[in-house]
Amino acid sequence: MIVKVIEFIGAVIEKPALGMGRIVLLLVSILRGMLKPPFEIRNIIGQMLEVGVNSLPVVLITAIATGMVLALHMYTGFSRFGAEGLVGTVVALSMTREFGPVLAALVVAGRAGAAMAAELGTMKVTEQIDALETLAVNPVKYLVVPRFLAGLIMLPALTIITDIVGILGGYFVNVVLLGTSSKSYLRATWDFLQMEDIYNGMIKACFFGAAFTLISCYKGFYTSGGAEGVGRATTGAVVYSFMTILISDYFLSAWLFR
């Protein structure tokens, strides 16, 4: 009986444990690859464009829509107890602490993370990754390190843009549409916003950037089973990235904003 229970537990945890082990090994290979020349500058810039610049339109739309709807709800709610003057403060704090990093991360993980898993997965099943190895090129260093660095660098940059555009969206709704004075809205925004709010949001963004690239590259790198496998890897990359971002967000917030 006890043996059967242990066997059952072993069977349940075997696959996740194997996956975790592989992710840790991949992270170690990435960190080693980052320190060892050649430094793949061209690839890194290419990936930064893909992750950062090409994600900009969808990030901008998400940011402005979120800032606007946030301001609208806050105004309606706060006006019930005469606190409309705090809308700017709440929008700014919500964007910098929470919505900026999380929304940018979710949008980029859905767009660029899925593309990473699909591209690497296709390379895996068509033996292109094996071909790189036979040509004496470390595939982690050549393919994964540039993507990892692009996520790590570009997500904080996109987060700053999301913060600014979201606050501007809130400003538009409150000042232009609902008639709050521009001066009092801006004062409410700046008076209570601290640098700590902004850079703690950036720390979150760095973590999310590293997490979604690591998960997406891992999923792509261990793809098997042809086109169906590539589809599974892409779906897995997006689902696990989203889960990781959302769950870790709580713990990061609890740690950073104590």
């Binding site: 050649p38 068509t126 033996e127 292109q128 071909a131 190895e133 036979t134 004496a136 090129v137």
Partner: peptide, 30 residues
């Protein structure tokens, strides 16, 4: 591995590169 050349069953050409970039890939790097 620089002493080896390998022809894959599926050819395994890098589909993001042109033909000459594929052929010259190892030359460019090594």
């Amino acid at each position: 591995r620089k002493k080896f050349g390998m022809l894959f069953q599926s050819s395994a050409l890098f589909d993001s590169m042109t033909v000459w970039e594929n052929v010259g890939f190892a030359l460019k790097r090594h």
